[in-house]
């Protein structure tokens, strides 16, 4: 366990880059390689986008999103915290990649990518806030 670093952003799509820069900086500091940082970028991008679109419904004055990073044994913990209405994105059904074009509906792929790219993903709520915790291993992937 190490020191936790926190970035708070306004819930809008143009804030995503700020979060990605924060992850680049601390991810590299904590030993994530380029591929691992890319996986963290895509995952955090997908989560923030979901929270902005569906949680806050594009109302940038409705609350905040916080990104927290902390080194763990063998990896890095990234936690996205927001005060949008409580919603567990992990309860969203995984879309079916075998569906033909015309049967496909928009949505659901972002959290699917998060599950695939991060080593563990868990959700809990506390104090009226959503917490999505993700662990990314510092070990190179096979």
């Amino acid at each position: 366990m190490g020191e936790r670093h926190t970035l708070q952003i306004i819930p809008r799509l143009t804030s995503v880059q700020e979060a990605l820069d924060f992850i680049s900086e601390w991810g590299a500091h904590y030993g994530l390689d380029e591929d691992a940082i890319y996986h963290c970028h895509l995952s955090v991008d997908e989560i923030i986008t979901n929270v902005v679109e569906h949680g806050f419904e594009f109302d940038e004055n409705a609350g905040f999103i916080r990104i927290e990073m902390e080194p763990m044994e063998g990896g890095v913990l990234i936690e996205v915290v927001d005060n949008a209405p409580l919603f567990n994105p992990l309860m969203h059904p995984t879309p079916d990649p075998s569906l033909p074009l015309l049967e496909r509906e928009n949505g659901g792929w972002g959290i699917h990518f998060v599950r695939k790219f991060m080593n563990s993903v868990t959700y809990h709520s506390t104090g009226g806030m959503n917490h999505l915790r993700m662990l990314k291993s510092t070990a190179p992937e096979a």
Partner: peptide
């Protein structure tokens, strides 16, 4: 990201 994939499908 999935936002880009969504527009390819649309």
């Amino acid at each position: 990201s999935s936002a880009g994939l969504r527009e390819l499908v649309n």
